[in-house]
């Protein structure tokens, strides 16, 4: 990556958007980048979305408040409505197509539909939807290396729930595969 990337993870409370953002921030920090993780603030807390913004930069980070993020991972419809239109032109939008049956309607951003809930259930843990999304996002952007992310994932989440680690890693791999296919020009 070069310069600075900002990404919003947004969804219902309980969908794990905060955790996904933190995992990304931890990994980027470990790779020597400047990071800031900011939970929902201001009036955005209303209207059915919980969200966090992660800023990853090669320079000292200025404003932690981002008007127009470079990317968003939206887990539910209110989040798509809210953040779909805020993404910078040329940015990236990942939509949870398990719960959202529309697209943003924008033609100036890269859009990827990821059925994160379906993939997570298939992998054996419905709660791993956030990890599917994070894996897909990282695969799309190369914001951090995948190995570093997986290592951080094992470190932060693996120790507490060992029995879930394998299914979570499976969900992780599926999210990555789907995004890499998309990148390579295939259809997900």
């Amino acid at each position: 990556m070069t310069g600075q990337i900002e990404v919003v993870f947004a969804g219902f409370g309980g969908q794990g958007v905060m955790t996904a953002g933190q995992l990304l921030a931890y990994t980027a920090m470990d790779e020597g980048k400047q990071v800031a993780w900011i939970p929902s603030y201001g009036p955005e807390m209303r209207g059915g979305t919980a969200n966090c913004t992660v800023v990853v930069s090669e320079h000292r980070i200025g404003s932690p408040i981002i008007n127009n993020p470079g990317a968003a991972c939206v887990f539910n419809r209110p989040s798509l409505d809210k953040f779909g239109e805020l993404i910078r032109p040329g940015g990236l939008l990942l939509i949870n197509s398990s719960l959202i049956d529309v697209k943003s309607g924008r033609d100036d951003v890269t859009e990827l539909l990821v059925p994160v809930n379906d993939i997570a259930i298939r992998a054996g843990n419905p709660k791993a939807a956030n990890m599917v999304m994070l894996a897909a996002f990282v695969a799309m952007t190369d914001i951090v290396s995948f190995d570093a992310l997986e290592k951080m994932f094992r470190e932060k989440l693996g120790s507490k729930k060992k029995e879930l680690l394998e299914v979570n890693l499976k969900a992780f791999a599926e999210g990555r595969m789907l995004a890499e296919k998309e990148k390579a020009g295939g259809k997900a």
Partner: peptide, 10 residues
């Protein structure tokens, strides 16, 4: 401000 408290940074 509350942001300093809630924000995560390295």
């Amino acid at each position: 401000d509350g942001m300093i408290g809630q924000m995560m940074e390295a």
